[in-house]
Amino acid sequence: MLAVLNQTFTISNSSGVFCELSMDGIGTCWPRSAAGELISRPCPEQFNGIHYNTTNRVYRDCQLNGSWAPRGNYSQCTEIIVLRKSKVHYQVAVIINYLGHCISLGALLLAFTLFMRLRSIRCLRNIIHWNLISAFILRNATWFIVQLTMNPAVTESNQVWCRLVTAGYNYFHVTNFFWMFGEGCYLHTAVVLTYSTDKLRKWMFICIGWGIPFPIIVAWAFGKLYYDNEKCWFGKRAGVYTDYIYQGPMILVLLINFVFLFNIVRILMTKLRASTTSETIQYRKAVKATLVLLPLLGITYMLFFVNPGGEDEVAQIVFIYFNSILESFQGFFVSVFYCFLNSEVRSAVRKRWIRWQDRSSFRSRAVRATSIPTSPSRVSFHSIKQSSNL
């Protein structure tokens, strides 16, 4: 501030005509300056809650008549320009994200309830489905917690609770991939390794799905704490690669699952094509569901690495919509393919519905039978008959 005042004093003494201290609509402060000069200021540190690189400069003319040019030149502050042009698209993407996560959470809770109530279909394969759905429920729930609690002020404060929220969200994100890996392991064992599923135990998959991600996230948290301890552990600092501590295992299990699926499809197309047993049919349907969901998860996650920059606005907008739809509706797709289209679940629900209808109709018939009043005419006839016998 002293340097600016000193600059202003020198200019006013040497010229006599100058532009007054001013602030534009972006929030950039333009100091008192000599007429006819081009003044530069750093790009704003943040705008609408988003931070920018202050090493870039913005320019504005101090005109000869002592007035500022109507607008400053913000061409080097590319994010501000993109933000203005794409503001509507960002708002629509936010709506899509909230809508998709709400629909996904509702579908996941319904699927979770069905697996919990339908005890007749409790086999290892469906228990794995159930846990995958549970992982997606927890991830969707923590997404809402992140959206409702995080704001620029909170991220700047970098408090312990917000770092724990970020760690929890990333943990459940990793569990999604490891439970998908569990799905692939089960199918690979059942189809490729000659149906040796009797050797598999539930605790093995619990260790894979819930256990392995925990030390991964703990290691990531320590890395963040010592090398990138800022902004509630969201984002990453340039040159710091601590996020790859959990992103690397996710990519690894994703690639292994693609290998598993290749082997499974090869076996199904060659050896099991003629088999029509109910177990084989269930495996085929599970493979179809996994074939759809695994690329869905993989495409969504790989998009993180090919996120187009701010140079190509059209590519950025397409990425925003595409990623928002795939990311927010993942839980819905998992519920549909692993529960709502599951023939075992549908058959069990149908049997429950038929039994409920039978019980309801039986109760209604019993109520009608007990509520029929005794006819007066019948009583009179019975009395007359007894009288005649006497």
Rank of each mutant, 00 (worst) to 15 (best):
F340D: 02
W210C: 08
F337A: 10
E230M: 09
V146M: 08
E183V: 13
S388N: 12
Y90W: 10
S33Y: 00
V92A: 12
R125C: 03
C339P: 05
L193Y: 06
V174Q: 01
S22Q: 08
S377W: 13
H89T: 15
E37I: 05
M180S: 13
S75V: 04
I217S: 09
R71D: 07
C102V: 14
N257S: 11
Q7C: 00
I256K: 03
S120W: 01
G298L: 10
L293M: 11
A289G: 13
V287K: 01
Q282D: 12
Q76L: 05
E230G: 02
F322C: 12
Y338I: 00
Q247R: 13
H173K: 02
F340E: 05
A315P: 05
K87L: 15
K285L: 02
L294M: 13
R359D: 11
R57G: 01
L109R: 01
Y321I: 11
A369T: 09
V240A: 04
A69T: 06
L109Q: 04
C62F: 03
V82T: 11
L252R: 03
C162E: 14
S343K: 07
W179A: 08
W130P: 01
V292D: 09
E344H: 06
Q330L: 10
W179K: 01
A238V: 12
I208Q: 06
L255M: 10
F47K: 03
C102E: 04
G310N: 15
I299H: 00
S335G: 11
W130Q: 14
L255T: 12
T8P: 04
T270W: 05
F319C: 10
Q147D: 06
L390A: 14
F262R: 04
S335M: 05
D24R: 10
M302V: 11
G309W: 02
H382C: 07
L83V: 02
A141N: 04
F337S: 06
V318W: 08
N307H: 07
F337P: 00
Y301W: 02
S67Q: 15
P308L: 09
T374Y: 09
S75F: 09
I217R: 01
I80F: 07
L138H: 00
M302T: 14
A274S: 14
T10N: 09
S40F: 01
S134E: 12
V253C: 07
P249F: 03
K85E: 09
I267V: 15
R41G: 02
R346M: 15
V165T: 11
S371T: 15
C43V: 10
S104V: 05
E313F: 07
H101F: 06
V306K: 04
R119M: 03
E327Y: 10
A190G: 12
I81M: 11
I325L: 06
S157H: 04
T276D: 13
V154Q: 11
G184C: 14
N229V: 03
V92C: 03
I299P: 08
Q91M: 13
P249D: 08
F9C: 09
G100N: 13
Q63W: 00
I216C: 14
W179E: 08
W203I: 08
R365A: 04
L105C: 02
P308V: 04
I208W: 09
N263K: 07
N170P: 00
L64V: 07
T8C: 04
F18N: 14
T370G: 08
G209I: 05
L114I: 02
I96Q: 10
Q247S: 14
S361M: 04
V314H: 11
T10V: 09
C232L: 07
N257D: 09
S15H: 05
Q63N: 15
A167W: 00
